[in-house]
Design a protein around this nucleic acid. Structure first.
Lengths: 175, 175
DNA sequence: AGCTACATGTAAGACGTTACATGATTTT
DNA sequence: AAAATCATGTAACGTCTTACATGTAGCT
C-alpha cells in the first residue's frame, strides 16, 4: 500500500514521470524514507493504472511510458495522508543488535557500537549535505528534518553507550 | 534472517523456551525492536531445528515443545552480532507522511503532525514504563535507551514542525 | 458446562529482493 | 565499434500478515 502512496506522492509533487524517473527519484530523494527498486515499481504502476490511480499520459522513445496521477489517485493520496493511523512497525536490525548487546563481551560490544556510530554519522553527513543551501528539495523538508533528528539520536545513543561500556571495561580490569 | 537472530538471542538470553513463550517474549520485550507473531515463529523454529541451530529439548503438556539453542546456533548468533554490517533499510510510514506533508494545506498538515506527536508520546510513555525501577529487563537496556531517544526525537520533530506550520498559518491569515 | 489461557499449526496472498533478460539511444 | 545509460520487464524466492483450523488444561 505505502509503495502506492509514495509513487502517487512523487507524481503529484513533481508531475508526470516514467517508471524509470520514479526509480531515480526514489534513489535520490525518497531513499531515507522509503526504498523501492524498479522491479517493484514497474509492476506496481501497471496495477495502479488498472485501478485508475494513474494513467499513461504519453509514450516516448525507447518504450518510455509517462505516467500521470489521475483525480482519483490524488483523492486516494490525500485520504491516506490525512487519515492514516500511525502504525509503528519497527524492524530495525541495529536495534536488534542493541537489544542483544549484553550477550557479547565488552570488547566485542564496543566494536559493534563503534560501527553503528560510524554508520549513523555517515548517514547524518549525507542528510546534512542534502539539506545544504543550493540543493533542490522539491518537497520533503520536514522529512529531512526528521531524518536528521533520528540520525542524531542514533549517534547520541552510540556515544552514551560507549561511555557505559568503557566504564564497565575499566571496572572489569580493575577487578 | 533477522527473525532467526531474534529467536536465537532470546533463547540464549533466557534459556530454553517454547514457541509460545517466544511469541509472548516478542510481545512484551522485543516488540519495540522486532515484531513477529506465532504464525511466523513456529515454522521458523522447525526450519532452525533442521539447520541445527536449535533443538527440541523436551516436550511438555498440550504438545508444548521446549527449544534450546545449540552450540552451532550460539556461534551463528555471535557471528551475526559481531559481524553484521548496519544496513539502513528504512520503511517508515510516518516518515512518508512527513515527506509528503507539503502536499497538504496547513490545517490538514497540522492535524497529521498532531496525531504523529500524540502517537510518539504514548510510545515514549510505554517505554518509560518499561524502564521504570521494578520492571525486569533481562536484557535490552541499551535497546530501551535507543528506543527512548528515537521516540523523543520524533516528539521533538513534531513540536518543531507544528511551530513552523503555525507560523505559516499565521502568515497566510495575515495576507 | 462454558470460558479463558495454553499450545501448535496451515494456507493464501501481499510485499520485497535478487537474478535474469531484452533492446534502444547516446557517448567515447 | 564498444561501452554506458536509458528503459522496461519476468521469475524465483524469501519474508510477513491475515484468516482459518485444532485441540488441551484450568478455572468458575
Amino acid at each position: 500500500m505505502s509503495l502506492r502512496i509514495a509513487l502517487l506522492g512523487l507524481l503529484d509533487a513533481t508531475g508526470p514521470a516514467s517508471g524509470y524517473d520514479l526509480a531515480k527519484a526514489f534513489e535520490k530523494s525518497l531513499n531515507h524514507v522509503w526504498q523501492a527498486g524498479h522491479t517493484q515499481i514497474y509492476p506496481e504502476l501497471v496495477k495502479m493504472a488498472e485501478d485508475g490511480l494513474v494513467e499513461v499520459e504519453s509514450e516516448g522513445a525507447r518504450g518510455r511510458k509517462i505516467y500521470a496521477i489521475t483525480p482519483e489517485g490524488a483523492a486516494r493520496l490525500h485520504e491516506w495522508l490525512v487519515g492514516h493511523e500511525p502504525s509503528v512497525v519497527i524492524r530495525s536490525e541495529t536495534a536488534l543488535q542493541a537489544f542483544l548487546l549484553s550477550l557479547l563481551d565488552v570488547d566485542d560490544a564496543i566494536a559493534v557500537v563503534r560501527r553503528i556510530k560510524a554508520d549513523a554519522e555517515s548517514r547524518l553527513a549525507g542528510l546534512e549535505c542534502l539539506g545544504s543551501p543550493g540543493s533542490e528539495l522539491f518537497t520533503g523538508r520536514f522529512a529531512l528534518d526528521l531524518g536528521l533528528r533520528q540520525a542524531r539520536a542514533m549517534v547520541d545513543w552510540a556515544e552514551a553507550t560507549l561511555a557505559v561500556l568503557g566504564e564497565r571495561k575499566a571496572s572489569l580490569q580493575g577487578a
